[in-house]
Design a protein around this nucleic acid. Structure first.
Length: 595
RNA sequence: GGGCACGUAGUCUAGCAUGGUCAAGGCGACAGCCUCCUAAGCUGUAUGUCUCCGGUUCGAAUCCGGACGUGCCCGCCA
């Protein structure tokens, strides 16, 4: 709690005063104090719940408390219905609030490092082809969380867990070595992920038609695991392809696809700090020690040579489905499963941080629960926290690569920039080509990120171009536009002003409500970060930008004759610009100086 | 069959952990505002059984129970 924030310290004092009044009235229950949304007061005491205890009507309680509290220069009180409304003294409150904001103007979030190391794992998509928008929420949610937690003061690392040991990947590698380039279809886009996915698709088709191909791929999988486990990356693990396939060759194929995928991410403004490959936990044998650990668990069982944890008592439901409550960690043939490697990764990860957060699709809920239970069996005191998101579907139904019912992220990005460009061209004919392109990217990609983050992750989304690329109303361009207006004023201001501003010169309702809106920023960031409610940030920014637009309409800044008032308004513009910029940055959205 | 999630005007979303003074915005619709720091803006109008039924409470969109609808999941796959 930051007591230098008047909103916080006033509330603390109000609460304390009421507590004392309650003692005099022999009311033992703690006071119920709220910040009314309706706006008729800054704070209010709600007395209904203690009416019975006090033996008084709510209205009477409010009046008695008011008279006991007496007067305070910081506020005026008003008993109304069962409420005791508290209105802060505007001059005093505005001065204290404004001074605090002004002191922190360069870093409007005023957070010191917390010393907490957080690892956020997000995206982690299989490296077998380009991203499609069904899962595009993942990198956007993950990256926003990373930025928000950093702004909050945590030490954050973004990790991408790369599946380089699954069948999907072996299919890809097989295809690259066995399918001649001239037998592939047209490449949809000149990018490694789009080029290489054709091998994956081709290999899939051959595998379905030819059992022999499937056998080769399965063999590849086993040999790869052996080679990795022995650290023999250059060992030939299949003589079938041209050239022969080595373990390092498989990794190369993956990295090829991955490079295309990460270039889509960087277009989105998403940065991954560390890529962790599944093969790492096999090569360093941490997978093996995790398996040993699980064997020692009292819940460990064996059936037909396979090992599993019996989670019957830990997982609810499924009485007639005994398989549901098993966490199989070793197959009958002794080989490990994906989830076992994931477990090894998690125990490594948890040992390197104070907090681990995973961003996962809602289809991973059950698996994630099992993972946490297995971690507990390994004696881990930490479990990852998970942010789940619902899938994005198309109006005609679920996205499906097989039915060719997909929208690729790259197409969405391209369309976003193209549509933004049209909008910029409607308004500006004075921009050079490179500036036009820069603004189009900032606006288009910003709109996309904003529209994803403004809705809670667990809500389902139906993808519609007009919603995803909404440029007005509650959107990134709306907020960016306010920022550009603020920049424009500051650019035209001429000579500087002499701070600190005299806030008492602000009297217009829209300038006062703007200052109050600005003051809420640190608390919004704090709540969004600590409760993982990213959607509060875009919501707040729209409200703040809207407040700025009202101010812009009502209060001319540069043509204001009174120098003191002009300076106070200029100070509001500086604060607005900085907060809009910081808030957008937390969302991975660039705030342009002009648009 | 079971588990988990979601259900708020034509439509999309906020509010729900801590029940409280008129259910808040956006889109779409309709009517207005540029001799003035960027009209991607602003002002006004219309639109609601907060899925339904019960319960708790002075008071329920919010808490509890049940129903209905929709989505996701239930493999020695990843």
């Amino acid at each position: 709690m930051d007591l230098s924030d008047p909103a916080v310290s006033y509330e603390a004092s109000f609460r304390e005063a009421i507590r004392e009044a309650y003692v005099k009235l022999s009311i033992r229950s703690p006071p119920v104090i709220e910040r009314p949304r309706s706006g008729q007061a800054d704070l209010c005491l709600v007395t209904f719940s203690v009416a019975r205890e006090a033996g008084l009507a709510p209205e009477e309680i409010a009046k008695k408390v008011m008279s006991i509290m007496g007067s305070d220069p910081r506020w005026t009180l008003e008993a109304s219905g069962g409420y005791l409304n508290c209105l802060f003294d505007p001059k005093r409150f505005l001065k204290e609030t404004g001074d605090l904001l002004w002191r922190n103007r360069e870093h409007p979030c005023q957070r010191d490092p917390t010393g907490t190391k957080v690892i956020v794992e997000h995206t982690s998509a299989n490296p077998n082809g380009p991203f499609h928008v069904g899962r595009a929420r993942n990198p956007i949610i993950g990256d926003t969380l990373v930025r928000l937690l950093r702004l909050y003061g945590h030490d954050v690392e973004a990790q991408y867990w790369v599946n380089d040991m699954g069948k999907q990947v072996m299919i890809l590698a097989w295809g690259i070595r066995n399918i001649p380039a001239d037998e592939l279809g047209e490449v949809a886009r000149d990018k490694p992920d789009h080029r290489l996915v054709r091998y994956y698709q081709g290999a899939n088709a051959r595998m379905e038609a030819d059992l022999e191909v499937e056998n080769e791929i399965n063999e590849l999988l086993l040999n790869y695991e052996d080679a990795v486990s022995d650290g023999e990356w250059e060992k030939v693990i299949s003589r079938k392809g041209r050239p022969e396939i080595t373990a390092s060759g498989i990794k190369e194929a993956i990295q090829g696809v991955l490079s295309g995928m990460t270039s889509s991410l960087s277009m989105l403004g998403v940065h991954i700090d560390t890529f962790i490959y599944e093969s790492q936990v096999v090569e360093d044998h941490s997978l093996q020690s995790v398996i040993e650990g699980l064997r020692r668990s009292p819940l460990s069982r064996e059936e037909d040579g396979a090992l599993f944890l019996d989670l019957s008592d830990k997982i609810k439901g499924g009485d007639d489905d005994r398989f549901r409550r098993r966490f199989v960690y070793t197959r009958s043939d002794g080989s490990a499963l994906y989830t076992t490697r994931d477990l090894a990764y998690h125990s490594w990860k948890l040992s390197r941080c104070d907090q681990a957060i995973n961003v996962l699709g809602e289809d991973h809920r059950y698996q994630s629960q099992m993972l946490s239970l297995a971690l507990a069996e390994l004696g881990s005191s930490m479990i990852p926290e998970v942010v789940f998101y619902a899938f994005v579907s198309l109006p005609e139904g679920k996205m499906s690569t097989r039915r060719n019912r997909v929208v690729f992220l790259d197409d969405l990005l391209e369309e976003a920039v193209e549509r933004a460009r049209e909008e910029v061209l409607k308004r500006r004919d004075d921009l050079a080509e490179d500036e036009l392109r820069r603004i189009s990217e900032i606006v288009g990609i910003g709109a996309l990120r904003f529209n994803v983050i403004k809705v809670q992750p667990e809500k389902r989304m139906v993808f519609k171009w007009e919603d995803a690329l909404n440029f007005e109303g509650a959107s990134a361009p709306f907020v960016q536009y306010s920022h550009a207006r603020a920049c424009s004023i500051l650019k035209n201001r001429g000579s500087g002003f002499n701070g600190p501003p005299d806030w008492s010169l602000l009297v217009e309702p829209s300038e006062i409500s703007l200052l109050r809106s600005l003051a809420r920023f640190p608390q919004v960031i704090g709540e969004a970060a600590s409760k993982r409610k990213m959607h509060l940030v875009p919501l707040y920014l729209v409200e703040m930008a809207s407040s700025f637009n009202d101010f812009y309409r009502d209060c001319p800044v540069l043509s204001e004759r009174d120098e003191g008032r002009r300076d106070a308004r200029l100070a509001l513009v500086v604060l607005s610009r900085n907060i809009l910029r910081t808030g957008l940055d937390a969302l991975g959205i660039i705030a342009p100086d002009q648009m």
